[in-house]
Simulated scan of single mutants.
Amino acid sequence: MRPAAGTLAGALMGCVALLVATFTFYGINLLLKGSFWWGQVYFWWARSLALGAPLGAVGATIRRPGLGGVLAALVVPVGAALNVIVLPPPADSLMAKPVLLTVWGAATTAAVLIVARAIRARRSR
């Protein structure tokens, strides 16, 4: 598949994946709790359309060689780290510290492995 077609397919699949995930979440909520909030569904569907395309396109570029692929691969670990900075778990929660340690540890490990893989790939050329 050509790079442009792959990026376009990734963008489309990013939107579809988030739309299906949202509908599935609220559909299961309807089955288990008997409630369905169309207002919330519309809220998340709008964000799925807005964010699904760029995230899907970024995901489709991860396997590209060079700096572009490395930066695309770093989106998830950097996003996870930023998430706990911008929206940290409640400080009074017993799970706050374990969640922070897990997210920071996983994000750091992923980033180190991504950069190490890129360096190894560059040296082998």
Rank of each mutant, 00 (worst) to 15 (best):
V99L: 07
V78I: 15
V16C: 01
Y26C: 01
M1A: 03
A17I: 07
C15S: 12
G27K: 00
G52C: 13
Y42E: 06
V86G: 03
D92M: 10
I62N: 02
T61V: 01
V86K: 08
Q40C: 03
R47K: 15
G59I: 08
S35V: 13
A118L: 11
A60W: 03
A53M: 09
R125M: 07
P90E: 04
Y42K: 00
T102G: 13
P77V: 10
A11D: 00
G68F: 08
A91K: 06
L12R: 10
G39L: 08
R117A: 14
I114Y: 00
T24Q: 14
S48P: 11
V41Q: 08
K97H: 11
L12N: 04
R117P: 00
R47Y: 04
L67Q: 09
A5G: 06
L32V: 05
A17P: 02
A53L: 06
L51E: 03
W104K: 11
A121K: 06
L74N: 03
L51R: 05
S124K: 11
A96K: 15
G6A: 09
M1E: 02
V76W: 14
V76F: 10
T22Y: 04
G34H: 12
V115G: 09
L12C: 05
I114C: 10
M95S: 15
G39K: 12
W38Q: 10
V20C: 14
I114G: 01
P54K: 05
L51G: 04
G68L: 05
L101N: 05
A118Y: 04
T102P: 04
R125G: 06
G69A: 15
I28V: 15
P54H: 09
L32Y: 03
T61Y: 00
K97P: 05
L82K: 13
L51N: 06
L67H: 08
L8P: 02
A46T: 10
T108R: 11
F25H: 15
P89A: 13
W44H: 11
A96M: 14
A80M: 09
N83M: 07
L82G: 07
L82D: 02
L18K: 11
Y42I: 09
R117Q: 05
K33N: 10
S48N: 02
A81H: 09
L18F: 13
G79E: 07
R117G: 05
T102M: 06
L55V: 10
G68V: 05
L30D: 07
V112F: 08
A80D: 01
A60C: 01
T108E: 08
Y42Q: 04
R64I: 00
A73L: 04
